[in-house]
Structures are given as structure tokens and as C-alpha cells.
Amino acid sequence: MKRLIRLRVNGEPVETAVPPNRTLLEMLRDDLGLTGAKEGCGEGDCGACTVLLDGLPVSSCLVLALQAEGREVVTVEGLAREGQLDPLQQAFVEEGGVQCGFCTPGMLLAATSLLAANPDPSEQEIREAIAGNLCRCTGYQKIVESIRRAARRGP
């Protein structure tokens, strides 16, 4: 019933056996121990489970693990390099873009994808890029400021 799949997660090759009904989110959290992606709703409404799939942010609760076969997945655990926070993480730390932290991994990945495509986004473009990532703590103000700060600083 399980099928062996190969993919790359945070740059590393991964081989794992999953049943067809396992979502990418469940595989990351339960099979690979990457609990950075969170389940906030399970229906694609909140963005807490956002990961990058071939570079694009998606709700990993709405992707089958089997659909990730042969693809490239990046989770929040893959952002820091050799213990160094990346500019977005650093900006979230410094600007107060983090409160409870539950939306943070997803926000960071949505923002990572934005800055990769558009290194100098306007405030409106930032807000559009994170429109699928709900946050109940910050009113988004400091999250937007964090992303702007990271953009100014560059990669």
C-alpha cells in the first residue's frame, strides 16, 4: 500500500515510503520530523503549512506526498545556512515580525518566494504575497516591515 518516493527536501535527497492518503504536510511532520510546517486548518485556509514546492509557496496540507515525487521541497528548517539566519529570518527577529510563531514558518516561505521573484517589492506586493498566510497576533504590520527590511538588505 505504501509507495517509495524520492524527492529533495531542503537540498538533501530523501527517500521515504508513504501511503497514498498521506499529505505532504503529514509526511514532512510525521515521517521526516520536520515540524516547522504547522497544521492550522487542514483545508488551505490559513497558510501555516506553507512550504516551497519547486520554489513556489503552497499549502502542503493540500498536496499529496506522492505528488511531491521527484520535486524540490523547502521548509522553514531549510532557510538558515550553517546556523546563520537568512536575511528574512534575521529581519523577522529584529523587527518583531514574530509573536506566537505559529504562522512564522509559512510567512517566511511565502516571503522567500516573493523576494526571489521580486527583490524590491512594494508594500502592496508584499501584502499580496502573504495574503494566504493568516496571522492573528501582529495585524501584519511588523511582518510587512520585516519583509521590507529584508528586501532592503538584500540576500
Partner: peptide, 9 residues
Amino acid sequence: VGSPLIRNL
């Protein structure tokens, strides 16, 4: 439609 996360899928 939805949000960027949904539109990517």
C-alpha cells in the same frame, strides 16, 4: 481565486 498559496496549486 483564494490566495497565492491556492493559486499555485
